[in-house]
Amino acid sequence: GSLMYASIFGNVSAIIQRLYSGTARYHTQMLRVREFIRFHQIPNPLRQRLEEYFQHAWSYTNGIDMNAVLKGFPECLQADICLHLNRSLLQHCKPFRGATKGCLRALAMKFKTTHAPPGDTLVHAGDLLTALYFISRGSIEILRGDVVVAILGKNDIFGEPLNLYARPGKSNGDVRALTYCDLHKIHRDDLLEVLDMYPEFSDHFWSSLEITFNLRDTNMIPGSPGSTELEGGFSRQRKRKLSFRRRTDKDTEQPGEVSALGPGRAGAGPSSRGRPGGPWGESPSSGPSSPESSEDEGPGRSSSPLRLVPFSSPRPPGEPPGGEPLMEDCEKSSDTCNPLSGAFSGVSNIFSFWGDSRGRQYQELPRCPAPTPSLLNIPLSSPGRRPRGDVESRLDALQRQLNRLETRLSADMATVLQLLQRQMTLVPPAYSAVTTPGPGPTSTSPLLPVSPLPTLTLDSLSQVSQFMACEELPPGAPELPQEGPTRRLSLPGQLGALTSQPLHRHGSDPGS
């Protein structure tokens, strides 16, 4: 009898404990919600809404976190579960008819179910419309201010047509639940991603989709105040780019002037030289400038040598048109050559190039014969006009050509200096018209024969001689050997007369 009593008592207590286990969990969670309300000092109306929603959600799901349970299964099984949970929507909604099984599984994985109690606001006026909503159960109302403009029910759709707008718009009203509602919502990016994977279904979906109420604000059109608020930074940046392009296009129409201050000032006329910023005076940081632009901040801005204009002085008759350009485009679109090309026009420029290279940067340069637009006047290309890779490749080509020119210049200078040193070592320090008596009659020769300089066969020296023939050397430049009979510069000019005159010897006659 005691054994029977113990078994009955144990079973009854276990049954009672299981009955009250759900209630215990409910009270535990309710205590957490109330502690949250007390800690954050939530006001009474919002506090009442929180408690009511918790009670309804507990009775609806029995305190089970559906998302946590669903995430515990593998992905393939999750797709089947989501397809079952959203079967009513996918079967009865017209846009989803005719979709393949794979497309429906992908869509079912992207849908999220939302449960809303009465009085809950789903979308506020001015919120971004980031999702498309399908009503599965219940009814909602749409308000503009305090005026109800629409009441939607089961199988209705609200949001915005995503295929017509590249960016999400703003809501033009509040969406509030009238009863307990079940909503299926899919985010904008998720829907577009699935439709991109199934393009054959995309056309059918957009053609058959009928949005019951379009929440997009109709005033959000390009150029409206609301649109400016939504895309303020983007609009200002776009206007700045367009104004920069218009100014650079105007600059290219004036090829007669070359400016070292950047493309923003290349198009300024002579009357605007004294102004601080020219056409860019209202925004000094709008356009890029070269490193020399920092010198323009000092006094005497109108007389600054940074602004270059072609000189009108005539060229000498024998002067060549100019050196070879550094870039391939210089032959086609440049009416002034790079300062480095002028360094190779003569030997005198070679000796004085490194010492006063900055001073020569603004000297007169030889002109190319074609009066085409200036290379320095070409505006900086924006990322939309020329690819970045093209600019980098041009810079690399320019750097390689500069290296080759520097190597060639160093070799030419070394060769010229070597020839000058050899000339100085071969010439005796001094010569006299009267020579010392020699031991015999073989001493009648006034000077030792001097062998002429070897013929220069280097390509670089031939180019130097060509430049010497075309360029007029300055007075202080050293002379180079030329073709024809060679003669030492330090010898007297009348050596031929010395050989014809008898030598005057000093000596005593033994017979006297």
Rank of each mutant, 00 (worst) to 15 (best):
L308D: 14
R188K: 05
R505D: 08
R386N: 12
T499Y: 12
L143A: 07
R394H: 08
N338V: 10
L426G: 11
R137G: 10
T336A: 11
G262S: 13
G355L: 06
Q482G: 11
P320N: 09
D459H: 06
V148M: 09
D156A: 08
R358M: 12
N377S: 14
L503W: 13
P339L: 11
S289T: 05
Y133R: 02
G323S: 06
E297L: 06
L132A: 01
W206H: 06
G493K: 10
Q418Y: 04
L503S: 10
I142G: 02
Y198S: 02
T252C: 15
R307F: 05
T442C: 12
T248R: 09
D459C: 05
T455V: 09
S139T: 10
L453G: 11
R394L: 06
T252M: 07
Y362S: 12
R144Y: 07
D127Y: 01
G438E: 05
Q401R: 03
R236I: 13
L195M: 08
P474T: 09
S285R: 09
I378S: 14
R404M: 03
G298A: 08
Y431E: 11
T130M: 09
P321A: 11
G322N: 13
D203M: 13
M327T: 12
I221V: 14
S227Y: 11
S341I: 06
P225N: 06
A469C: 14
L326G: 13
G153Q: 10
H504L: 11
Q401I: 05
E406I: 06
G346L: 05
G233D: 11
R273E: 11
K239C: 10
T218H: 12
G507L: 11
Y198M: 03
R247E: 10
P371H: 09
N403M: 12
P305A: 15
E193P: 03
T415D: 11
D189F: 04
L192H: 11
S207G: 13
F351S: 05
A166R: 10
I135M: 03
T252R: 11
I186L: 09
L376K: 03
E471N: 06
E295K: 05
L164V: 06
S451K: 11
G323K: 09
L132E: 01
Q501G: 11
V416D: 08
P320A: 13
Y165F: 15
A370W: 09
I140C: 15
D329Q: 03
T248S: 12
H187E: 11
G138S: 01
L242T: 11
S500A: 08
G346H: 06
D189Q: 07
V194C: 08
A268W: 08
E257S: 11
P373L: 09
E200N: 07
E392K: 06
P478H: 10
G232D: 10
L376V: 11
P291I: 13
D174V: 07
L495V: 09
T130G: 09
R238K: 10
R408C: 08
S290P: 15
S271E: 10
H504T: 06
R137M: 04
Y133T: 07
S235Q: 10
S462R: 13
A260M: 13
V149D: 03
L498M: 09
T457V: 05
E297A: 12
S382D: 15
Y165K: 13
F467P: 06
S272G: 10
S272C: 01
H204Y: 09
S382C: 13
L365R: 07
S286R: 04
L230D: 13
P371C: 08
G323L: 10
G267K: 10
P255K: 08
R245T: 09
E364G: 10
L191P: 03
P441Q: 12
L495M: 07
P478Q: 06
P255I: 14
P255F: 07
G496K: 13
R505F: 05
G322P: 06
I140K: 01
K185Y: 08
P379A: 10
L164D: 10
F311T: 10
M413G: 04
L417Q: 04
A260L: 12
T218Y: 12
S289R: 12
I157E: 03
Q423K: 08
P168I: 09
R505A: 13
G159K: 01
R400V: 08
R388E: 11
L417W: 01
L183F: 11
G126Q: 03
P474V: 09
P369S: 09
Q237K: 11
L375T: 15
Y165S: 10
P485F: 12
F351D: 01
P449W: 01
E200Y: 03
I157Y: 04
D182L: 11
N155K: 07
D190Y: 01
G496I: 12
G145Q: 06
Y431C: 14
S445M: 12
K170Y: 09
S243T: 10
M413N: 11
L143V: 10
S348R: 08
L458C: 06
G287Q: 08
E229T: 06
P320M: 06
Q418P: 03
S286G: 14
T179W: 01
D296P: 12
A469F: 04
E364K: 15
E472L: 08
C181I: 08
R265H: 10
L395R: 05
D174M: 12
C337N: 13
M197R: 09
G264K: 10
V147Y: 08
P379E: 09
P428C: 09
G223N: 10
S451N: 13
P321H: 15
R265K: 11
E364H: 04
H504I: 13
C181H: 01
G287S: 14
L164S: 09
D356N: 05
Y133S: 03
V147Q: 09
V147T: 13
P161D: 06
K239A: 13
N377H: 14
T435A: 08
S374A: 09
A166V: 10
C470K: 08
P437T: 10
Q482C: 10
R505M: 15
F244T: 14
Q399W: 06
K250I: 09
S357L: 09
S207M: 15
S290Y: 04
R265P: 12
G298V: 13
G233T: 11
L183G: 02
L192S: 06
T499H: 10
F467K: 11
P321R: 10
A477H: 09
P449E: 12
S283H: 15
P452W: 04
R246I: 12
P316M: 07
A343K: 09
L326D: 08
I142M: 02
R388Q: 04
E210Y: 03
C337F: 05
S443A: 13
P316E: 13
R422K: 06
C470V: 10
S348T: 11
L375E: 10
G298R: 13
D459Y: 05
W206Y: 12
Y133G: 02
S393Q: 12
S224E: 12
L405V: 15
G223E: 08
L195I: 07
Q363A: 14
G226R: 10
N349I: 02
S293T: 04
D127G: 03
L456R: 09
S304C: 07
I221N: 12
M468K: 06
F205P: 01
R246F: 08
L461Y: 05
S171P: 03
P437K: 15
Y198N: 04
V147S: 12
M424V: 13
S393P: 11
H506N: 09
R367L: 08
Q423D: 06
K239P: 13
P371G: 10
L398G: 03
L215Q: 01
L375C: 15
A469M: 09
D146M: 03
R394A: 09
V427R: 07
M327K: 04
P478F: 10
E253K: 07
S293Q: 15
L183M: 08
P474N: 09
P478K: 15
Q421P: 06
R360N: 12
L458R: 06
E331P: 09
I140G: 01
N163G: 09
E364D: 09
V416I: 11
T228L: 08
T499I: 13
L242I: 12
D189R: 07
R240F: 07
S334F: 03
S410C: 15
P454I: 04
G298S: 13
G346N: 07
V148H: 08
G126D: 03
Q363N: 15
P325M: 12
N219W: 10
D329K: 08
Y165P: 04
L398K: 01
A414S: 11
D251M: 08
G264E: 09
A433Q: 15
G138P: 02
S508L: 08
P446D: 08
G173C: 14
T228H: 08
A469N: 12
L491R: 12
F205C: 02
P279D: 14
T415N: 13
S462H: 14
L461A: 12
S303F: 06
E193T: 07
E331N: 09
F244H: 07
D190H: 03
L261N: 10
E210N: 07
H204Q: 09
L402C: 04
G359W: 15
T248K: 07
Y362V: 08
G476F: 15
Q421F: 04
T425A: 09
I350T: 14
T228Y: 11
G264R: 12
F244D: 10
R422C: 04
V147W: 08
